[in-house]
Every structure is written in structure tokens, then in C-alpha cells.
């Protein structure tokens, strides 16, 4: 398979999409007359199976790589919160685009799975669309945007608002898996600190937040202690999502491609956000409900509407918002 073919599998928006490039070499799409346009898929119903791409193994990775990743996943589950090193592969996408999550998903994925991919809560952003399409083309599995239909949800930086259930797998894309990295840059040292469960420096960092700002000012990648032992980076999810990780019925897998680490939180496992008795962990609250669906108690994105600084707050989880609107919930639709 030529390099061009590989890029075609995963068109980079930085290259202008790769698809509109006017018959790129090595394209694997048939060149015949374009088929009649299919009926536009309704949201949440793009479950049609795509034939998997000829020439690629199921879900892109070779079987030896999958075995290696699978062994790392099993050890990660056995030692919750511990970062298992793995031989991360080059993927047809740049580091930082979710190569760790993609490799974990590829190792776990089976023909019967239904895959959902979100990026900051949204199913329709570039990263989510291209990863979903990547797996649809290389594995032929069904994809969905509905949290309730998915068996595997790959996520960049959010946990869906809809509570997850037993049997679902949440795969996180992780940029920097080491929670102590900004306190101690040497891997040899952080590995020792984890071995000794020496997490004093993390508490000092949170304390310094309090002494400077009067409260713990860390709002994302908020450190957690897993099963009473390892301190873990929950990936850059807003701390709003930390409580959802605690005793979740779903299996949570974390993949960091550039940093070559896999870690996991099994279902029904305690995930405690670090805090102090007199400064207990709190999540952020929003003053307004979602402007589109009126939801409260969900994580909202701030949308700037014009140069005058008018803003609107809407659900970050697009599937949750669409589901509520389909059920008849309506927000004010107004800027604040």
C-alpha cells in the first residue's frame, strides 16, 4: 500500500481534506461515475456498514501489534491506574491526534462492536469524524453518534453526559499520561515516585493553587487516585467529568501514543479526585442552562457570537443535546 493510499485512509484537514484533491494517486475509491447521492443519514443513524478497505488488516493494525497492545491492556486492568509501557506504532495520523486511543480501539474492536468517537464532547468535529471514518473503512464496524447504542466510545477530553452502562468501553486519547510530569520531568524519577506511592509533590502543587488563588485552580487534567493506590492523569477532561469516572459501570482504557503508555480503570473502581479536608473537591457550575436544549448540570461550551462579545452557552455533548431537543426540550436560544 503506497504512502498516498495510507494518507487517503486518513485525510488530514491540514491538507485540505485529501479527498477533494482531484484524483489523488493511489486512491482506493472506484473511479466510476459517482453513485446517486444516498439519502442523507439522520443523526445517530449512520449505522450502515462500510465494506472494509481492501489490503488492510481488520482495524488497520497487524496482529502482532494487536497482541502486544492487548497484553498491555490486560496488565493495565490488573493494576488500575498504573501506566503500562507499550510499543506504540506510527499511525497514519500525527501524534496528538489520538494515536494512543486509536491503537487501543483497534486492539479491542471486534466485528460486532458499534463505535462512537467524540472530540470535546462532539461527534461532528474533525478529529471525531476522521477517526470514526478510519475505523469504518478499515474494519467495517457499525458507527453511531448515540451514546446509548455504542459498545466502544473513543473520546478526546470528555465523558458523555448520558450515564454509561456495563459492557461499554470508554477509550481516552491521552496526550501526557504522567500526572507528575510537570512537577518532575525525569521519567526515571516519576517511575520511582509511583513505585513508592510518593505523591507529596502533587499535594504541594494543589496547595500552592490554594495559597495563590484561594482555591484549587486546576480545572482540567485534575489528578485522581485510583483504587487507593496510583495517582493518575484522567487525560485533559474537565474536572467536571471526574465524578463520572468513579465507580463507573463501564471499562475505561487510556492510550497515549507519543508517550507510549496504556492505563486503565476497571468498572466499579474508586476514582478519587485529590483534595484537602478544608478544600474539598468541587466541580465547576454554570450560571445558565444550555441555550439550545435547556439542560442544567451538564458541561457547557462558551460560543462567541460576534465581535461585541455576545456569548451563548451550549452543551458540549452534542449527542446529549440533540437527544434532549428531539424529546422536546427547548432552551432560550438567546445570548447572555
Amino acid at each position: 500500500m503506497s504512502a498516498t493510499g495510507t494518507h487517503e485512509l486518513f485525510p488530514s484537514p491540514l491538507r485540505g481534506g485529501g479527498r477533494g484533491g482531484g484524483g489523488a494517486e493511489g486512491t482506493t475509491e472506484p473511479r466510476s461515475a459517482p453513485p446517486p447521492p444516498p439519502a442523507p443519514p439522520r443523526k445517530g443513524e449512520e449505522r450502515g456498514r462500510t465494506p472494509s478497505e481492501a489490503g488492510y488488516n481488520f482495524a488497520y493494525l497487524d496482529e502482532g501489534t494487536k497482541r502486544m497492545i492487548r497484553r498491555a491492556i490486560l496488565k493495565a486492568i490488573a493494576v488500575p491506574g498504573y501506566q503500562v509501557p507499550f510499543a506504540s506504532r506510527e499511525m497514519p495520523m500525527p501524534y496528538g491526534w489520538g494515536t494512543g486511543g486509536v491503537q487501543v480501539t483497534a486492539a479491542v474492536l471486534g466485528r460486532a462492536d458499534v463505535l462512537k468517537v467524540i472530540d470535546q464532547g462532539a461527534d461532528d468535529t474533525t478529529n471525531a469524524v476522521s477517526i470514526r471514518r478510519f475505523f469504518a473503512r478499515t474494519s467495517g464496524v457499525a458507527t453511531t453518534t448515540r451514546t446509548t447504542e455504542a459498545t466502544i466510545i473513543q473520546t478526546r477530553h470528555r465523558i458523555p453526559e448520558t450515564p454509561l452502562r456495563e459492557g461499554q468501553i470508554l477509550v481516552y486519547q491521552v496526550p501526557i499520561p504522567e500526572p507528575l510530569r510537570f512537577l518532575e520531568p525525569r521519567e526515571t524519577e516519576t517511575r520511582q515516585l509511583h513505585a513508592l506511592a510518593e505523591y507529596g509533590s502533587m499535594h504541594v502543587k494543589l496547595y500552592e493553587d490554594i495559597s495563590r488563588h484561594g482555591h484549587i485552580a486546576t480545572t482540567y487534567a485534575y489528578p485522581v487516585e485510583v483504587a487507593g493506590r496510583y495517582v493518575m492523569d484522567p487525560s485533559p477532561t474537565p474536572k467536571f467529568d471526574n465524578p463520572k469516572m468513579d465507580h463507573s459501570p463501564a471499562l475505561q482504557l487510556f492510550g497515549a501514543g507519543r508517550e507510549r503508555r496504556i492505563y486503565a480503570v476497571p468498572p466499579y473502581t474508586s476514582v478519587r479526585s485529590l483534595d484537602f479536608e478544608d478544600h474539598p473537591f468541587r466541580v465547576q457550575r454554570f450560571e445558565h442552562p444550555c441555550a439550545l436544549c435547556g439542560a442544567e448540570g451538564v458541561y457547557l461550551d462558551e460560543m462567541l457570537l460576534d465581535d461585541a462579545g455576545r456569548r451563548m452557552f451550549v452543551c458540549s455533548d452534542t449527542d446529549h443535546c440533540e437527544g434532549r431537543r428531539a424529546d422536546g426540550h427547548v432552551g432560550t436560544g438567546e445570548a447572555v
Binding site: 496482529e63 490486560l74 486503565a264
Partner: peptide, 19 residues
């Protein structure tokens, strides 16, 4: 079916260790 039988076996073992 080396690809899918291996995947099915792994998923059973993964689910077993996760639960």
C-alpha cells in the same frame, strides 16, 4: 479465523479480568 477468533478470545479475557 485468526483475526476474529483471537479478538474474541482477547475480549473474553479482558472482560473477565475487568469483572
Amino acid at each position: 479465523d485468526p483475526v476474529h477468533d483471537a479478538q474474541g478470545t482477547f475480549r473474553a479475557v479482558m472482560d473477565a479480568l475487568a469483572r
